Amino acid sequence: MNEVTVRRARIGDVDDLVELRAEMFRSMGSVGEDELWRAHAFDWFVDRLNNVAYGIFVVDQSGRVAACAMGAVRDAAPSPLSPDGRDVLISNVCTAPDLRGKGFGGKAFDAVMDWARQTGIARVELMATPSGRGIYERSGFTANAFPAMRARLSAGGPSA
């Protein structure tokens, strides 16, 4: 049987969430195979699975995590586009490489968007890869005129 279920992530899904996160980084060209970040990511997911400020969803295909998506409520100073200062950051939208093209990523994304709407927060944001851009645009996302910039804070100097 090929049963597909979309649900909130559970403790037994954390290894798969970390692996899908690693796959997301590989797809983005951010190679980093050391185990330290994976151990921290494992603990991070465990700590947030039941936190109401996070919506972590998986698409389960016959007992296998096929895809995931995550939302997090962020708190910031109020602004014209976010009068109460809060927004939702969507991230970690990823599908296992051998299961791409079957709509699983879209199902995970839809679940996290439903969760985001239920928070009552008016704005949602995400960072899109070229391959994911279409699904986000179909959901009403538009490119921002002010793209994200990053710098590493370390003794070694600036590098992103």
Rank of each mutant, 00 (worst) to 15 (best):
F57I: 08
G55Y: 01
E19N: 10
A69D: 03
E35T: 00
G106R: 14
M113Q: 09
L17N: 00
D87V: 14
G12H: 03
C68E: 06
V73P: 07
D13A: 02
H40I: 09
I11M: 08
V93R: 12
A116F: 09
D16E: 11
L81A: 12
D84R: 11
A9S: 08
A67I: 07
G105M: 02
R64W: 15
G32Y: 02
R7E: 04
R38D: 11
G85P: 08
F45C: 12
F25V: 12
S30C: 15
G55M: 06
S27F: 10
V58N: 02
L99D: 03
L20A: 11
S62R: 11
L89D: 09
R7C: 02
K107W: 07
A9I: 00
R74H: 05
V46P: 15
M70G: 13
D110P: 03
V112W: 01
P80Q: 06
D84N: 15
H40N: 12
A69H: 03
N50P: 13
F42S: 06
C94S: 13
V52G: 08
F109N: 05
A116H: 09
A53K: 12
S79K: 09
D84I: 06
C68I: 03
D43G: 14
G63Y: 14
F42C: 10
L17F: 01
A96H: 08
R74L: 10
V59E: 11
R117K: 12
P80V: 02
C94M: 15
L20R: 13
G103Y: 00
F57P: 05
F104Y: 13
G71K: 06
G29E: 03
D98A: 14
L99C: 04
P97N: 05
D15Q: 07
G106L: 14
R100F: 11
S82A: 09
W115S: 15
D47E: 15
D114N: 07
L20G: 04
V58E: 01
T95W: 01
M24G: 14
D84Y: 04
L36P: 00
L81P: 12
